[in-house]
Amino acid sequence: MKFLFVTLFGMMASASMLAPRPGMRDMEGARCMALLPQCMGDTSATRPSDYCIQCQYLDRGIYPSVATPMPSYYPWWYGYGMYQYPSYYSYPGVWNNGGLSNHYYPGPGNMAAGKPNIYFHGLENGQEFDFKISYKEKANELSTSPIHTKNGWSIKKSKDGLVVDGTSYNYLYYDYKLDSNKLQSEAGFCGDENSVYKKMVSVLNTMKFKKAEVDDFENYWAFKIPKGEYCVFPQEHQELSEIAAWQSSMQPQFYKRVLFALIPKDQILAKKGANFTKVPESDWNPMRGIYRNVAQADSKFQIHEWGVAFLTK
């Protein structure tokens, strides 16, 4: 009897270990919906550095430990343009009637994505691959660094970073114009410029973007969101691949991609926010932006991308 119980218990335990984990779909490019290490790409090669989500506004610099939307340190370039450009602070670019200027950010789309930064992890030194952004209907490139040729970027991993055309970069950068009608307009969050900024940082931390990647986000967006009330509609790879598709010669096992579409709340209420006609009806789950490609289970390669988009006027 005792033997039978032990055997039965053992069989049940084995079955539960072999069964698919709840929330994780074992299919190529499946979206990860659980905070499991396996789902976050949390391996020794790619593990994000320790980062206290709750402490991110409290532990830097000499300032009092109070929550503030701004980092308590300032990037070295913070004071450089203040006397040269009237829109240096609080604007992401040339601003016009509650949006980015269509004149300076040309293209048929009605929205401009500013500063999508792409990071690559889990590469061996000397490893080479090609990566290209392929723009779909009503989307076009505005700016990139380094230069994005018709074949994209040819990248080689070195100890100093990602080498493109002989120069080392920490990340690749591109701006593009897009059609907002292809974006989701149901889930998100609202608040003033300070609270939506904090929430975006929180989303990046929840998605386990690395500390340096979140720092890059903070260094720029802490100072570049115009004053006002916004609703933020985060977009994931599923929507973005219909607009600006990634083409890579090397497939990642994990990828994270989020584009925060910031829509002024008054434009939504006045039905002037394009397809964003109502405030978000539900919260956006940050796990939606994390994908796992089980066909590449042996690969350590990961791609992380964050960006921010505004309507153009």
Partner: peptide
């Protein structure tokens, strides 16, 4: 934008 010295960028203006 942040560009390393000896780096490159492209613009559509």
């Amino acid at each position: 934008l942040e560009v390393p010295l000896d780096g490159s960028a492209a613009f559509n203006l």
